[in-house]
Write a protein that binds this DNA or RNA. Structure first.
Lengths: 230, 230
DNA sequence: CTCGCAATTATCCAGCGGGTTAATTAAAAA
DNA sequence: TTTTTAATTAACCCGCTGGATAATTGCGAG
């Protein structure tokens, strides 16, 4: 029994292994579908194309996911689930307020930069008025750990006098997401209008710093004077 | 000859007046197409539906605009043109720096709030990677007067020491647009995730103030010390 | 009045694409 | 081995929709 290629251990089952595996097949469909939906939208994505790229028959998609729309929901669930996981790895609690805010900003920016397909998917879902996210038990139940983390950072910062007491966690999260998502989602129309490069490393680095600065200057307390308004 | 309704002057030509008017027909198609594209996207929009709502035949759409894609481009041109016009009415030059920045923020926010279809259209065009905006001579040539206005405000503010010298007009415009557009474009996924109302008058008012504050705090100079960096 | 042209309509068509019907086959159970 | 069940496939169906063909009609010019 000679192994022709010593590198790759010869497997018992040749070629078409991995079939008849419910979970694996579903996962593969889901991954390809994610790419297709993110690329072409709910209507633009094509069931035949998904099947072809996943190396299966179209019928199988409907066998597991019933309809294109339910497949889209499953894709959304997967994508949001991954973000949630990433957010859990953020440990802001140990940092000082300013460092925590800056780290939060950079993490969020980097995440969106690294996952443009996710950003596109969210944009697509918004075009559909959040119809699918609403229909999903899993998604409406899913908590976003990042909100709790932000709240803790704010509480600490406020008690130390480093952060303004009026700052609200949700508003902050919205502000940061808006800034961070825009750089990916509205890239094309912005670039076309202003001939402004948004994808080069230098432009991205600059924008990252800019957003971090915007966020920190927004939350930090004004040390200058106690009578700002008068 | 009694007029049943004294209000509405009886017109000579009954019912199907207003046809055989090239410009008017085109404008009507464009308006309906704008609504349909903003509602359903490039693929979702239906030529038959546009024709029906415009009270014409589908053939007429292709007679004037050749293809669905060219119609979409024409719609984009119209929509961006309107924004450009609105921007010209902004007179920031006369205002003091802080007032100008706040007014700019409020104007931008209000514009997007008042024109959600426009925001949706831009999102849709970005999903298509700005393919159409690039193809349009008119759009790639179209200047955005608001950039010049921002530059003038910044110059004035910097010379008065009210605005930080590092602030760049394009970055500022990007920041403001991101914040302002997000409130409309990502409404649905955000609301679904956080059960956070974004459409009520009170929420909108709050967000408007928040964005204005973010922007001003971002651009204003730190009066506290002259040696910020050292 | 009528001629010519441009605006408009009625009708058709072909391909695409989501979804289905029914047969097949791999693997687990007996 | 046989049976059973579930995963997978092949082939089909049919409504929808962008676009095309060709006929028609209103209007302005002469």
């Amino acid at each position: 029994m000679k192994t022709v290629s010593a590198r790759r251990p010869v497997e018992n089952k040749p070629a078409k292994v991995r079939r008849r595996d419910r979970e694996k097949t579903k996962a593969e469909i889901l991954q390809i579908a994610f790419e297709e939906f993110a690329e072409s939208g709910l209507l633009g994505a094509n069931a035949d194309a998904i099947a072809a790229k996943a190396g299966i028959t179209k019928r199988l998609i409907f066998y597991y996911f019933n309809s294109k729309e339910e497949l889209f929901i499953a894709v959304l669930e997967m994508a949001y689930g991954k973000m949630r996981l990433a957010e859990e790895d953020l440990h802001l609690a140990t940092l000082e307020p300013e460092a925590a805010i800056r780290r939060l900003a950079e993490f969020t920016f980097d995440f969106h930069q690294a996952n443009p397909e996710f950003v596109r998917l969210v944009a697509i879902e918004n075009i559909h008025r959040g119809r699918h996210i609403q229909r999903s038990e899993k998604l409406t139940q899913m908590t976003r750990p990042i909100i709790g983390q932000i709240e803790r950072v704010l509480a600490k910062g406020k008690s130390l006098g480093a952060i303004r007491p009026e700052i609200d966690a949700h508003e902050l999260h919205m502000t940061l997401n808006a800034l961070s998502i825009f750089s990916v989602a509205n890239r094309h129309t912005f670039e076309a209008q202003f001939r402004w490069d948004m994808t080069s490393p230098s432009a991205t680095t600059r924008r990252r710093a800019e957003i971090t600065e915007v966020l920190w200057r927004y939350v930090r307390s004004d040390e200058r004077s106690a009578t700002v308004d008068q």
